[in-house]
Design a protein around this nucleic acid. Sequence first.
DNA 1: TATGAATGAGATTTCATTCAT
DNA 2: CATGAATGAAATCTCATTCAT
Lengths: 201, 201, 201, 201
Amino acid sequence: MGADKETREKLIDSARREFMEKGYNKASLRKICADAGVTTGALYFFFEDKEALFGAIADGPYNELIAILKSHFEEDEALMEQPYDAEEGDHDAFVEELVHHLYQNYDVFHMLLTKAQGSKYENAVDDLADILDETYTKMSAKMGSHYGGKVNKAMVHWLTHMILDAFIHMITHEKDEKKALAHIKKVMNFITKGWTAVIDK
Amino acid sequence: MGADKETREKLIDSARREFMEKGYNKASLRKICADAGVTTGALYFFFEDKEALFGAIADGPYNELIAILKSHFEEDEALMEQPYDAEEGDHDAFVEELVHHLYQNYDVFHMLLTKAQGSKYENAVDDLADILDETYTKMSAKMGSHYGGKVNKAMVHWLTHMILDAFIHMITHEKDEKKALAHIKKVMNFITKGWTAVIDK
Amino acid sequence: MGADKETREKLIDSARREFMEKGYNKASLRKICADAGVTTGALYFFFEDKEALFGAIADGPYNELIAILKSHFEEDEALMEQPYDAEEGDHDAFVEELVHHLYQNYDVFHMLLTKAQGSKYENAVDDLADILDETYTKMSAKMGSHYGGKVNKAMVHWLTHMILDAFIHMITHEKDEKKALAHIKKVMNFITKGWTAVIDK
Amino acid sequence: MGADKETREKLIDSARREFMEKGYNKASLRKICADAGVTTGALYFFFEDKEALFGAIADGPYNELIAILKSHFEEDEALMEQPYDAEEGDHDAFVEELVHHLYQNYDVFHMLLTKAQGSKYENAVDDLADILDETYTKMSAKMGSHYGGKVNKAMVHWLTHMILDAFIHMITHEKDEKKALAHIKKVMNFITKGWTAVIDK
DNA sequence: TATGAATGAGATTTCATTCAT
DNA sequence: CATGAATGAAATCTCATTCAT
């Protein structure tokens, strides 16, 4: 026992480093194997190909992220049926959970969001945008009717991207989770203010 | 006649296509030459290396962009010395010029902003951010004192990135210049509103 | 069995031939691989690059040569402290060892001394000259004071080169070890005689 | 007028520099043309190919050298028929002429003797050796019978090489003509002394 | 005379992947 | 489980040379 897992994990560790440093495309399987102290054959025993190796690192955190988002949005949408009350606390809790998850897997998300070109995750940002879009479209429709204003679809789409970009910016510029959280809260506040300012006309 | 320029331009055209499709790193000089109907040697007659070929496509539009930005910001800073009046017209004109320049060279900027990894432009976004930062820092200091509020430095930094991201988002999601302009104007409005909302407290 | 070593050795054999024929710079890795009946990739499994392939052929014999020289010179210098006696026998033995080593690795030294331009051994002759210089300078100082004459430094430097050139000439003009040995002994005798004739004034 | 010769001479000048720096094989015709401020086509108007360009630089000085040697040796051989008298003055004059010619064309001979691999002059040293051999064989036969000793053919051959090597060493290690002359005179003295010492037994 | 364009073959090196053992 | 060898295609780049104009 042990030796089995150890090799696989050594491989994953050194792959993580290599993918981080070079990005998906330029990462060298040779180097990953060399750093892990095994041969290329070993790698191909555990993983079907480069893509699968990348998946072994990224799939878990990514899918969890999707789950977190979906679960939250389902709650949100359910909440929207009910009379409005102090949602803010919940929202803060959600952001905290989100940031925590992102920073628990800091390297992975850094990779996924900025160095995945060439892999199946090269459109991860767009995929996330689609998920956000779905929810925000529903929400803005509600909010729009609630506030009596009209909401532009393209603007909603852009909103989702702006929020995404804010998180990407956070990850690429702030390594410390606490500072990141403080920062992103301000940013979300900014966006909300701007948003209502736009709608409130 | 024409044969001289034609080859060089065929090369540039096919390079543009290849760089657009594959990004700088994965673009194949072989394929570029094959598509242009010449041998690789021909390419090296006109361009020193891959980087130079990329530069031949990107340098012009990029440098012009920088010039447009700098010239505008110099005006802006000069204006800030004077009593505040309807600057908005100017600002709109500036955004229009900017968007026009970006869409006149649509492919190039698409490349530069999203597919330049490995080239000398791989940090173009950061470089642009630095330029914006400089101006926005000065401006926000003025505005801050004007409105009596305090302005967080990290927020300014993020603001510049948000604006940049907005433009990148525009280019990557909207091919039509008119629609892009309409969109970006709303976005800028949004940001301005959010901005004052944040400061005004 | 054997397949492992065979390829590596086939590669080295065909490399030796190619380097010998064309010299380091003009030797073609393609041809080396083709002659060895493997693909270029195979070469890069065994050797890091062209330089390393050359090193795999030349490093061993060269380092041994250095070792033989240094060991002999240390003895020589030790001997100089003692009263002079029949050193000649030792010297002959040394020359025999040297020639034997050179002709055991005839091809390698032929390469090293005349076809290594572009490789890390392109200054091998000068490096050897430095080693000889060091010893001969000490020795000539002793001999000079012993014989009451003065010894010119540039002449010592030239002496070392003359001896080196003699060995190079031997290797490039005489393939048979026995004949080479007989020849070089005469040459060394000549040089010694000329040397003392110069000093004895 | 003028322009014709100027181009040809610019080409030759820049070729000289390039051949000196890189050696025949690695010298780049492109660079030679670029440095001369002309295109490759121009080069091929004046010179048939790389070899011819090299010849245009080296042929003159080389052939003159051959002429000097042959003329001197003819005189020498004629002199040997006559009773021996103070030949030394003549010999000194010859060495002076030789060294002068070599240093008048310092770059060329430096090239020819150490950087001509790949060109028609790559065996120049051996060719010169053959010329010397011819004469020295005759001379040593005479001298041998004169002194009553026997002279080994291989030793004569080596003698010529030693003398050649001495000149090569001079050119590669001493840039100043006067110092070179002083040095080579000592060396020739050394060789002569060694020679008679060997024969005199 | 000379240009400027283009060729075509060659160079070294890197890579993901495969497979017999 | 894992090794070590090998593939084969592709990468960027360099070069001497040619030729229509």
